[in-house]
Design a protein around this nucleic acid. Structure first.
Ligand SMILES: [Mn+2]
Ligand SMILES: [Mn+2]
Ligand SMILES: [Zn+2]
Ligand SMILES: [Zn+2]
Lengths: 131, 131
DNA sequence: AATAGATTTATACTTATTCTAAATTGAAAT
DNA sequence: ATTTCAATTTAGAATAAGTATAAATCTATT
C-alpha cells in the first residue's frame, strides 16, 4: 500500500483540490473539472477523492453539512464555519495536549485524534450585520 | 416560541431518547417506538426529533457518520467515538476558554461554540485487542 | 356542533454517495 | 508488435437519510 498510481483522472481531481481555496465538496470538484474541460463520471470523482484520501494526499472533512468537503492541507488543523454565509476557515491553534490527556483519563478510551468544528460569524458577515 | 406542545408522538419520542443510553439515531428511535407498541410515520419521528431539538429538550449530534444521533443531555459536553465498535461516550472535560479566545483572534470570527468529536478505542475494545 | 389551526400520515421527492457490470486502459510478458 | 490481465473508468441503478406535500385527523375554542 505504498505506491501511488496517479491516473489522469486522479491527477486532475488532485489538482482541483490542491488549487482550491475553499474546501470544495465532491460536487464543487466535479464542476471545476468540467470548467477545465474534463468530463469524468461521478463515480470516478468519488473514487478518486477516496483514493487520494486513503493515500493521505488530501483529507476528507465532515463539517456537519450533508456533503463532505476535501482539503489539500494534510497538516494538523481544525475548521471554523460561518453560521451565516457558510465560509470555512482554517484553525491552526492547536488543541492543548493536556485536554486530550484529560479526556483519555475521563473516558478510559485510548485517544487518537480530535475533530473540531467551531461555529461563529466571519468578519465580513459581522460587518454586514452592523448595516 | 416559549410554549411546548407535547403530543402523544412527541412525548413517546422524547421518552425513547431520554431513556436511551447510547445516543440513538432516528432509525434507532423508530425501532424502539415499535418495540413499545407504537407505530408512527417516519416523518413524524423526524418532525418530533426536530421539534424537540428546537425546543432544546434534546440535542442533535453530527458525529461524522451518515445519520444524526440524538442526546437527551443538553448540558455542554462533547463526544468520543470508538473506532472499532462505534460506541459513543460522553466527554465532560470542557474545552479551555483560552483556546476559543485564541481561535477568535486567529480567524477574526466571532466564536459561538465548538463541536468536538474525539476518535479512539474504548476500554472493552482495547481489552479484546490484547487477546 | 362548527370552525380553524396544528399535527400526523402516507407517499413522493431530493441529495449525497456507493454499487454493479460492462468497457477501456495500460503495463508487463511474450 | 501482439497478447494478456489486472486496475480503472464509465453509465446508470441502487441505497440511505432526510425533507416536502397534500389529504386526513386531532384539539381547542366559540
Ligand atoms: Mn483546512
Ligand atoms: Mn452526549
Ligand atoms: Zn460569513
Ligand atoms: Zn469499542
Amino acid at each position: 500500500m505504498k505506491t501511488i498510481n496517479l491516473t489522469t483522472q486522479r491527477q486532475a481531481v488532485y489538482d482541483v483540490v490542491r488549487e482550491a481555496e475553499d474546501h470544495p465538496t465532491a460536487a464543487d470538484v466535479m464542476n471545476r473539472l468540467v470548467e477545465r474541460g474534463h468530463s469524468f463520471a461521478y463515480g470516478t470523482v468519488y473514487n478518486s477523492l477516496r483514493y487520494l484520501t486513503e493515500k493521505e494526499m488530501i483529507r476528507e472533512l465532515k463539517l456537519g453539512e450533508a456533503a463532505s468537503r476535501y482539503d489539500a492541507r494534510t497538516d494538523d488543523h481544525q475548521h471554523i464555519v460561518c453560521e451565516i454565509c457558510g465560509k470555512v476557515g482554517e484553525v491552526m491553534t492547536p488543541m492543548p495536549e493536556e485536554w486530550m490527556t484529560r479526556v483519555a483519563e475521563e473516558t478510559g478510551y485510548e485517544v487518537h485524534e480530535a475533530h473540531i468544528v467551531v461555529e461563529g460569524v466571519c468578519a465580513e458577515c459581522r460587518t454586514k450585520r452592523k448595516k
